[in-house]
Design a protein around this nucleic acid. Structure first.
Length: 711
DNA sequence: GACCATTTATTTTTT
DNA sequence: ATAAATGGTC
């Protein structure tokens, strides 16, 4: 059975007892090792499938793993729990969250709900919103929560009491509101699970005993909480196998902790480390070029992949004049690949650094009549119309959920506006009531004047009607009922625009998804459906069987492979992204991202960029990506229209004139916009400028990198 | 409360 | 360029 494994893979499969770290390079047969190892546990060691837990990050990865295991083991495999971290934790919480003082009817707030809640918090403390970007606060909150260490052992979540920054100030208020709304954000799902296990030894023992063998995929992307969760479960039996590759860690900005994999041997004593360094995916040219790129990083355990595959074609480098021409090159090449290299659309993928880049490429593909499929971007469950309907669902399940209630009001279908809404919210806050209780009270006491009262009563009746219907019908029927009964569909029909019709299609799709859920779950509940929708993402249903070129960000490409890959926008400031230039760790992460992108390609790789490109409406000229400089000529062929000089370093459009004080000069920065120089510090290489930007405020920048234009 | 004009902020985002 | 959020008027 294990003949078709190489020696390293065999060792990984055979080591079934005790901690094991498999450092699996790109395309080194990682999935094969995982599935064979599970097969060995069950077929040869007599381990019950029920005692095995396999953790992944995405639903797609877990579905794929399920399929691979099933094709190897058949029926037996169905009892293995193959799940994402979040859905595994969610199961645990739904069962036992009451043990730590929460109701198990909690709802899950996604990133958009989180933003709405943070805005509410900012209002509450009277902090002017323009001082801070809500998104960056959300990011800060998540980073703080996922790296949280001590508070989990305490009774309440206590966070750093430093009041000097907005994140620390907002966090306790934010947590208070989550609790009041009986809602958890994504991070809470992990935090509270760990907290639950820490505070209930019996429960912990139960799960330790249940999951005697644990396997974690993409271990390099775990954050502190996920590490803690795995550590707790595996602590007793130590049968923990993690698979990962530090060179493919690209979610550091979301709190993924690369140290988890770098320090695995410290966390689990006597761990065996096996490196899988033979690549079965890419041609030698592609692999060698990728190795040259990743070699520059310092934060590595260090490994060099090799392959017995043939050398293959050289990587193609094309420097276009504009982003439009870059797109046209892709279209042209896709066509010729399909004609000459007998490729089909589904063999081809285009990666880019930011979602905004996809539009130009789409335009070009569409013009050329090439079918394409975009992965990522606006998620299905993030669409306005979907969120609106889901808000009704949530509120029916959990009437403490003020975010959903606010959303229902904002659908503008109940004739209740900002004034009435504020009154309700204030009344609720003053009397410490949930919005639902507040309405009931207001109606009882006839608190408002005629028309507002009437509308409120009507809304209350509607909500009661929905509640009743939900109890007596299946989820899909309920979703359909909401769409009709609230007048949501009617309103869209009346609009009669292209956009409205599109929204109606999406709402139908939602009903279909619910039907699917009903069919798969005999006792389907609204709450169960909400859990699925909360944890769903778009890459989950990416189907490579469709005959279409796949377009996605480099981040989304992780874990996938394609015979032919284009990476567009390989320019400094685009990729590596401008925000990484001031931080070495972030620059290393960009480099890993480049490595991930390149190693997706099996046969052909095309690296593209443009001399000029329109960004946010203005033209920008960027030198080609510094990562390209690390690919030796022997692996890459330049087919650009004209030999073009590729500046090795950034153009210094603002040379520091000797002795002259630049203070007071007006300058323009490509990212921060217009500003005025306040003062100069340091000299030569270390020279920095303190600049006040109209939009971005005071910034300190290195002259060398800032790429300023004098105005 | 609806509508239009103005302002603002735009990395990546497995869950 | 562009979409979303905010602000002002009717």
């Amino acid at each position: 059975m294990f003949r078709n494994l190489n020696p390293a893979q065999q060792r990984a499969v055979m080591h079934t007892k005790g901690p094991l770290l498999v450092v699996a390079g790109a395309g080194s047969g990682k999935t094969r090792v995982i599935t064979y190892r599970i097969a060995k546990l069950i077929n040869e060691e007599g381990v019950k499938p029920y005692n095995i837990l396999a953790l992944t990050f995405t639903n797609k990865a877990s579905m794929e793993m399920k399929q691979r295991i099933e094709s190897l083991l058949g029926q037996k495999s169905l009892d293995i729990l193959v799940s994402t971290f979040h859905s595994a934790c969610l199961r645990i919480l739904r069962r036992d969250i009451e043990k730590i003082g929460y109701s198990n009817r909690f709802v899950i707030y996604d990133s958009l709900d989180q933003i709405a809640l943070i805005k509410h918090c900012l209002d509450e403390i009277g902090s002017p919103k323009e001082d801070h970007s809500v998104k960056s606060i959300a990011n800060g909150i998540s980073l703080l929560k996922t790296s949280l260490r001590e508070p989990m052992t305490k009774d309440s979540l206590e966070f750093s009491n430093r009041q000097d920054d907005i994140v620390n100030k907002i966090l306790p208020i934010y947590q208070k509101h989550l609790k009041n709304n009986n809602a958890l954000d994504f991070d809470d799902i992990l935090i509270l699970t760990v907290k639950l296990l820490l505070s209930n030894q019996d429960l912990l023992a139960y799960y330790q005993n249940r999951f005697h063998y644990i396997l974690v995929d993409e271990y390099q992307d775990t954050n502190y909480l996920q590490y803690k969760f795995v550590y707790l479960l595996a602590k007793a039996h130590q049968n923990i196998c993690v698979v990962g590759d530090e060179d493919q860690s690209i979610y550091g900005w979301r709190g993924a902790n690369i140290d988890n994999i770098l320090n695995f041997e410290k966390s689990f004593k006597n761990a065996l480390v096996i490196k899988l360094e033979e690549n079965y995916r890419s041609t030698r040219n592609i692999l060698d070029a990728s190795n040259n790129v990743i070699r520059k990083n310092k934060q590595r355990k260090g490994k060099t992949l090799f392959t017995k595959n043939k050398r293959g074609n050289k990587i193609i480098y094309y420097r276009a004049f504009s982003e439009i021409e870059e797109g046209d090159f892709i279209s042209r090449t896709v066509k010729s690949l399909c004609e000459k290299a007998k490729a089909t659309y589904k063999d081809i993928a285009v990666f880019y650094r930011t979602n905004a880049q996809s539009r130009v490429i789409e335009d070009s593909l569409r013009k050329s009549g090439i079918a394409y499929q975009i992965i990522g971007g606006l998620k299905f469950y993030d669409r306005k119309e979907i969120k609106d309907i889901i808000a009704y669902c949530r509120f029916v399940v959990n009437s403490d959920d003020s975010i959903s209630f606010n959303r229902i009001i904002k659908t503008n279908m109940h004739g209740i506006g900002k004034v009435t809404m504020d009154k309700i919210n204030n009344f609720a806050m003053e009397n410490n009531l949930s919005p639902c209780q507040a309405i009931r009270k207001i109606i009882e006491q006839e608190k408002f004047s005629g028309s507002a009262m009437k509308k409120l009563k009507k809304l209350n009746d509607l909500l009661n009607k929905l509640r009743k219907f939900a109890e007596e019908n299946r989820v899909s029927e309920f979703i359909s009922f909401i769409q009709l009964e609230t007048g949501y569909i009617d309103k869209l029909l009346r609009e009669n625009s292209f956009e409205a019709r599109n929204r109606i299609e999406n709402l139908k799709e939602l009903v279909t998804a619910a039907k699917c859920f009903d069919e798969n779950n005999l006792n389907s509940t609204v709450n169960g459906f909400l859990d699925v929708t909360s944890l769903a993402s778009d890459i989950d249903d990416f189907d490579e069987k469709q005959g279409a070129v796949a377009l996605m960000t480099l981040h989304s490409s992780k874990g996938l492979e394609f015979p032919m890959v284009f990476i567009a926008g390989m320019e400094d400031k685009i990729f590596p992204h401008v925000r990484s230039f001031y931080n070495e760790d972030e620059m290393e992460e960009e480099r890993r991202l480049c490595y991930v992108g390149m190693t997706r390609a099996k046969n052909r790789l095309f690296l593209l960029n443009a001399v000029r490109r329109k960004i946010y409406g203005t033209d920008q000229e960027n030198p080609s990506s510094q990562f390209l400089n690390d690919i030796p000529d022997e692996f890459m062929e330049n087919v650009s229209p004209r030999k073009q000089q590729v500046p090795k370093t950034w153009k210094r459009e603002f040379p520091a004139r000797k002795g002259k004080n630049p203070a007071g000069k007006k300058v323009n920065h490509p990212f921060f916009g217009d500003g005025i120089i306040l003062k100069k510090e340091g000299t030569k290489e270390d020279e920095t400028l303190v600049i006040f930007f109209k939009r971005a405020g005071k910034k300190t920048l290195k002259t060398k990198y800032a790429n300023l234009k004098i105005l």
